[in-house]
Amino acid sequence: MLLIPCPYCGERDETEFSYGGEAHIERPKEPDKLSDAEWADYVFMRPNSKGVLLERWVHSHGCRRWFNVARDTLTYKIHAVYKMGEKRPRVPKTDYV
């Protein structure tokens, strides 16, 4: 059970949150101008990183706010949380294969 520090409410159990996948994937401004492949890239293709991943969570059973988390997907260690629109934090490099 992860302990996730919601930037608005503080530390709460994982069960209060929903997951939103990788962060910083912006919806294309003009989807019509994209090729099918580029659109598929936006909708489906992800690095699915093993290591520190910048990802989105929402405190769905709390403040209902979305925010970003820098979490290691192997150790599950949370390195940082930051609000939507805030700058990406510095995170340690991981090199798992």
Partner: peptide, 18 residues
């Protein structure tokens, strides 16, 4: 459980969540 990781090494991405 490692498909994306090896695909990344080979230079392409997949629509996979692990």
């Amino acid at each position: 459980g490692h498909t994306s990781v090896l695909a990344e090494l080979a230079g392409f991405r997949l629509p996979i969540h692990s």
